[in-house]
Amino acid sequence: MEEQKKKLHVSGRILTLSVTIVVCVAVMSFLKPETFFTVSNLGSSLTTVTFNLILACGMTVVLMLGCVDLSVGPIVAFTSVVVAKLLQGGAPIVPAILAGLLIGSGIGALNGTLVGYGGLAPFVATLGTQSVFRGLSYVLTSGYSVTGLPEGFSKIGQGTLWGISNLILIAALVAAVLALLVPRLAFFKRVYLVGTSRSVAFMSGINSNLILIAGYTLSGFLAGLSGILMASRYAMGNAGFAVGYETQAIAAAVIGGAVMAGGEGSILGTVLGVLLVAVVNNSFIQFGGNAEWQTAISGIMLVFTLFIDVMRTRKAKRKGLI
């Protein structure tokens, strides 16, 4: 019985989000039947969603740790540039991809070390790496795109399998694997505990610093993966890729139930958060809104969600629950 109660409790936000998404989609397909459900609309909006989804999954883990990763956008750009340079210089595809994943993970591990052993505030540490790697990307490219990539490589991001874009499949796979692992692995239990209180975790014999490094490394790895996929999708590396993507990832994760203070969050919630932001964005565009509004919209939704969270906490406090 206890188990049941818990499941119901967890599904509260999941349910709200699912219903909202379904209602939005229903309303849109009623109001704009001729365009909303067309293959080109769904396809184009889903591909833009994929990068946000992969990044938001990593961000969820970092938020669970009570931290934040502002460097994911620049990691995407830097990885795309380095991988494209390697390929341009004639490196074989598989080693180039592995190098890209390694770079992403390495920057993540650096973030984790700065926050953990270095004791820097997550905001400050990742703000630093954000500038460093965005800047390095521009240094490496002098602002030009790195093009001339082999066709075998661009096929990854442009190709399809069973009629579905590879990008969507990869993002779905990443989300599914994490959604299965997060509630089960002992590692993620430690992540939750470190996020709830680093000092209590330390006294409980949990190596908080290692957990922080591992969490950031995962986020960096996924950002590296996004960088490779983006380079493949657009057949180039570019220092200007993924500007502001970290804000969107944070927004999606928080809408999905993660809290900035740490100790909370779920991959399933984040997936729904990503979808909701995408549906709202798409609706906006369908009604003739400018696509440039995307970042602003996710920002507005983030603030709105945080506001609702504050109201909820206040209510719980009044009831004497906290």
């Binding site: 939750y192 505990l193 709830t196 209180s197 000092s199 209590v200 975790a201 100790g263």
Partner: peptide, 12 residues
């Protein structure tokens, strides 16, 4: 500050 994860359930 050092003993319990107050927002977390007993079992955790």
């Amino acid at each position: 500050d050092l003993g319990l994860f107050l927002p977390k359930e007993i079992s955790d």
